[in-house]
Computed example of a mutant assay.
Amino acid sequence: MVRSELIARLTAQNPHLHEKDCEAIVSAILGRIEEALVAGDRVEIRGFGAFSRKTMRARQGRNPKTGESVPVTEKKALHFKPGKEMRQRLNPGLPDALPELRRAG
């Protein structure tokens, strides 16, 4: 689903709202999530999951064409961890893993 499809579905489910209103709502929510992640905060949406920022350390990489070693600088990456309810909806019928198994994975 892309942003425009999300806005269209919200508009269809809420006929009392104009499409521009739904677009503003989606933009406000996504903008606030983005601001929090840029600031280094964790964003948790109960029942859905949590977004966080991870730091990928600097390392030596390889140019795949030449095989030459090249430095890769430190960078930030987005990490998403689905919540328990989301995992259960994605995998209906599967038991939730035991706590000992979760730590190992």
Results as ranks from 00 to 15, higher is better:
Gly49Val: 03
Val43Thr: 13
Leu78Ala: 10
Ser52Trp: 02
Lys76Thr: 15
Gly49Asp: 08
Phe48Ser: 03
Gly83Val: 08
Pro71Asn: 12
Ile45His: 10
Ile45Asp: 09
Arg42Thr: 15
Ala50Tyr: 04
Phe80Asn: 00
Ser52Thr: 14
Gly83Ala: 12
Val72Met: 13
Lys81Asn: 10
Lys81Gly: 05
Lys65Cys: 01
Gly40Trp: 04
Gly83Arg: 09
Lys81Ala: 10
Lys81Cys: 02
Leu78Cys: 04
Arg59Gly: 12
Thr73Asp: 14
Ala50Gly: 07
Arg46Gly: 08
Lys81Arg: 14
Gly61Ala: 13
Asn63Thr: 11
Gly47Ile: 00
Lys65Met: 13
Pro71Cys: 10
Ala77Leu: 10
Lys75Asp: 00
His79Asp: 08
Arg57Ala: 14
Thr66Ala: 02
Thr55Phe: 06
Arg53Gly: 04
Gly67Gln: 02
Gly47Met: 04
His79Thr: 14
Val38Ala: 12
Ala39Asp: 11
Ala50Thr: 13
Thr66Asp: 08
Glu74Gly: 07
Gly67Thr: 04
Phe48Trp: 09
Gln60Phe: 13
Val43Ala: 12
Arg62Ser: 06
Val70Lys: 11
Asn63Leu: 08
Lys65His: 13
Thr55Val: 14
Ser69Cys: 09
Thr66Glu: 08
Gly47Trp: 09
Leu78Ile: 15
Leu78Asn: 00
Arg53Ala: 15
Lys54Tyr: 00
Gly67Arg: 03
Val38Pro: 03
Phe48Val: 03
Phe80Leu: 01
Lys65Phe: 07
Lys75Phe: 00
Pro64Val: 12
Ala50Cys: 04
Lys81Pro: 01
Ser52Lys: 11
Lys54Ile: 13
